[in-house]
């Protein structure tokens, strides 16, 4: 997406329901402008989007290249430094340690907080992508085919939807990875992701189904069918591109929710656990030292809160951009 000038966005997006003439007019510019490009213009002008996007970029960088932010090994424990308070003097000095202090085992909290981003982003992103794929596919099938497929998928999804999220996750995780076990990082991470997908897909399927149902009623879908288009073409060219927006929005907001949920489960001891570094685990570690060493919990908790908020804000901004009518 290059950046052609923003001078005249289409009148269509303007909140002017009572004056269709403004919409009627042909635009002056010859730049082809798809609805996605329009959404992008819209987004770039929103402070909410810019701030959350910057925050998220930083978190993603942390997750991908934690060594950019800290040269310290998050697992290196030195009991001599146990429960050392933060050294504010060493802030903004790369290579130093102890900016955020040291935990009980003398591990560097700053380094661990940085490395903790990876678990959150990986779990959140994979769970949401998995949900979109699985829920989206089922949603399209239900919505487009209707009839028995729809009824069966809907009832099947309702079973999962009926389970309260935390309870469901507790049950699944404590069955496959009991609290006393210490599974490998890969195993426990994928288990958590799969739990989220198992419990989350029905909501995604519902959203997709609703969007497909309303999209497939639209005239251009009938027009394609009247031309003799096969179902595959109708779905991928006409239905999906126009029905995917609600799921993208919900996905972004849910991503924030999943990062929080991952921390919750890790805190409870059934989610991620050592050797994975995660904000939830750190918060859990810190809970017994709330009074003597509040910094153990405070820093990861702050990062967690900012990350969740960033994604929720991004979701809001994306929704506004994709659907001006909701404003």
């Amino acid at each position: 997406m290059s950046s052609p000038e923003v001078a005249t966005p289409t009148a269509e997006a303007a909140p002017m329901p009572v004056t269709p003439a403004v919409v009627e007019s042909a635009p002056k510019k010859d730049k082809p402008r798809s609805l996605w490009t329009d959404a992008w213009y819209e987004l770039r002008r929103k402070p909410l989007f810019v701030i959350s996007a910057i925050m998220i970029t930083i978190f993603v960088l942390m997750a991908a290249f934690p060594s950019l932010f800290s040269s310290v090994d998050p697992q290196a424990a030195d009991l001599n430094r146990s429960l050392t308070p933060p050294d504010f003097g060493s802030w903004f000095q790369f290579g130093k340690q102890g900016q955020f202090g040291f935990d009980l085992q003398g591990k560097d909290i700053y380094a661990r907080t940085i490395y903790g981003a990876r678990a959150s982003i990986v779990v959140g992103l994979s769970a949401v992508l998995g949900n979109m794929l699985l829920g989206g596919t089922f949603g399209i099938l239900s919505g487009y085919l209707g009839g028995w497929t729809d009824t069966l998928l809907a009832r099947f999804g309702d079973i999962f939807l009926g389970l309260p999220f935390v309870l469901g996750a507790l049950v699944i995780l404590s069955t496959f990875a009991p609290v006393q076990d210490s599974p490998s990082a890969l195993r426990i991470t994928s288990l958590v992701i799969m739990t989220f997908i198992a419990l989350g897909w029905p909501s995604f399927a519902r959203i997709m189904r609703a969007a497909v149902l309303s999209t497939k009623q639209l005239d251009y879908v009938h027009a394609a069918q009247a031309l003799g288009a096969r179902p595959g073409r109708v779905i991928f060219r006409h239905v999906l591109p126009n029905a995917i927006a609600p799921m993208v929005v919900v996905g972004t907001i849910t991503l924030g929710g999943y990062i929080g949920a991952e921390a919750t489960l890790s805190f409870l001891g059934v989610g991620l656990r050592e050797p994975v570094v995660s904000w939830g685990i750190m918060i859990g570690d810190g809970r017994n030292y709330m009074e003597t060493a509040p910094y153990i919990m405070a820093f990861p908790a702050a990062f967690l809160a900012i990350a969740v908020l960033s994604f929720v804000m991004l979701g809001d901004a994306v929704r506004d951009a994709l659907d001006p009518k909701l404003r």
Partner: peptide, 29 residues
Amino acid sequence: IQLVMQDPYTSLNPRMTVGDIVGEPFEIH
């Protein structure tokens, strides 16, 4: 046998260019 529909606002796929819309019959046939 072809069809022209009532509502010019819903009968064209908003995510396709005019060229793609008018050219779609050729892709289908």
